[in-house]
Simulated scan of single mutants.
Amino acid sequence: MASVEAGITSVFSDFQKYLTADQELGEQIRVCVRDIEQKSREIHTQLQQVHQIQNIKNTPALCARMKPEFTTIAEDMKKLAAIIPPNQYYRFHDHWKTVMQKLSFLTAFIKYLEKEELNTREEAAKMVGVYTNREEGFHMDLDDYLHGLLQLASEQLSRLAVNSVTAGDYGRPLRIAKFIAELDAGFRLLNLKNDSLRKRFDVLKYDLKKVEEVVYDLTIRGLKPAEQMEEESK
């Protein structure tokens, strides 16, 4: 009987060792993610300056200041990747998926401010210091990348369209409307499940509507740039 009790105790003792090691790993992950979250918040705060009237027409300088900040984030990502056991990325994914989505959004925002173009998943992953595909290792999950693009439209571009009018930049809202319309068309090509990404995408049509209302207001007030009207007439 004693030997049976000793055997059971030994089994549960092994379980406890496993749980303790798992908890310690979880804490290490949280510390790494917390550092990345703090740096991403700082970048986000700085990028908010684009909405100030004096900065709306000088976005390249703001982006140039922010891009080097991603170097330290890439270093932190490498530290995080180093502590994740092989083939256990998705087991711990919930720890960093929110900050990864935010980083996807921030890289997309910078790319848009610089060139008014869509940031690819490859560009976003490279800037953050991770891989693109799971086969390569620690990567930017496709859903996280797509969430970031939707955040770009809902959190920044619709607001930027309004503030651009205030700053006297009447051409930007039209370009933003075109960009969001193309983004909406792109998402409609995807067979999204009824999950958080689908729900976030459903909001995109309202973001587009907000910007289209700004464009409509410019049109009826006769403030639409002449070159834009010429382009539409062709």
Rank of each mutant, 00 (worst) to 15 (best):
F105C: 03
N58K: 15
R175S: 09
G171F: 00
E136T: 06
S158Q: 15
H95K: 13
K102Q: 14
R175C: 06
K97E: 09
L113F: 03
W96N: 07
P68E: 02
K102G: 10
K102M: 07
N58V: 11
K39C: 05
T59V: 14
F179M: 02
I73N: 07
L62T: 04
W96T: 07
T166R: 12
E122F: 09
D143R: 14
M66E: 10
I83V: 09
Q48R: 14
L183Q: 10
L146P: 08
A181T: 11
R134Y: 14
Q101H: 04
K78R: 13
F92M: 01
L80W: 02
F70S: 06
M140P: 01
T45Q: 12
A108V: 00
I43D: 03
T71K: 15
Q88F: 12
F92P: 00
L118S: 11
V128E: 08
Y170E: 09
F105Q: 02
E136C: 06
K111W: 00
V165F: 08
V128G: 00
Q46Y: 12
E155F: 11
K111F: 00
H95V: 11
T107P: 07
K39L: 12
A181L: 11
H147E: 13
T72H: 12
E155R: 10
T107W: 09
E75M: 10
T71R: 13
G137P: 05
A177Y: 07
